[in-house]
């Protein structure tokens, strides 16, 4: 029988997910049962396991949340850029990272940009610019630089002129 005073782990996960958050295993006030575990999504981060409700949260968004929780800003930015270049394909506006759900500070954004240049493992990530001055990023592993340049200009300027 369920104790009336404690909220089940499943309900806690559901509630958090509906509000747009993942739950770290340590954040659960009730033990998660095997059955409950089969009903939720989980992501293993560097600092433990995170749960989310796949009915209200997409795995990709959960992964963004885990990276934010763990302050893995650089990895998150790189993953986002590569995913955009590979999947849609499109370039990623630098401004995206200042908006929610990312909400990086200006300082963080600058550190990320520098790291893309200096640190190993990010050689595929490149910058491109639009005529309105906006900067975008893309992965040349998935996107041709000339195509990236077109897509960046289209996103910033062209689309609004072609309703």
């Amino acid at each position: 029988m369920e104790n009336e005073n404690t909220v089940s782990a499943l309900d806690q996960i559901k509630e958090k997910s509906a509000a747009g958050f993942v739950v770290h295993e340590s954040g659960l006030s009730a033990e998660i049962t095997e059955e409950e575990r089969s009903m939720v999504g989980e992501i293993k981060g560097e600092k433990g396991v995170y749960f989310f409700d796949p009915n209200t949260m997409a795995p990709r968004y959960a992964s963004i949340m885990v990276n934010l929780e763990e302050k893995n800003y650089l990895a998150l930015a790189a993953e986002t850029i590569r995913n955009d270049s590979r999947t849609y394909p499109r370039t990623t506006p630098l401004a995206l990272f200042s908006e929610s759900s990312f909400s990086f500070t200006q300082e963080t954004v600058e550190i990320i940009l520098r790291s893309f240049q200096d640190k190993p493992g990010f050689e595929d990530i490149e910058k491109c610019g639009a005529s309105n001055g906006a900067m975008h990023l893309f992965s040349k592993k998935y996107l041709d630089p000339a195509q990236a340049e077109y897509l960046c200009e289209w996103d910033e300027v062209g689309r609004a002129e072609n309703q």
Binding site: S17, A58, R60, Y61, R90, L96, E99, S101, R159
Partner: peptide, 12 residues
Amino acid sequence: TPQPWAEHDHPG
């Protein structure tokens, strides 16, 4: 914009 429920999003 990226939103919890959405697997995909697009700036256009």
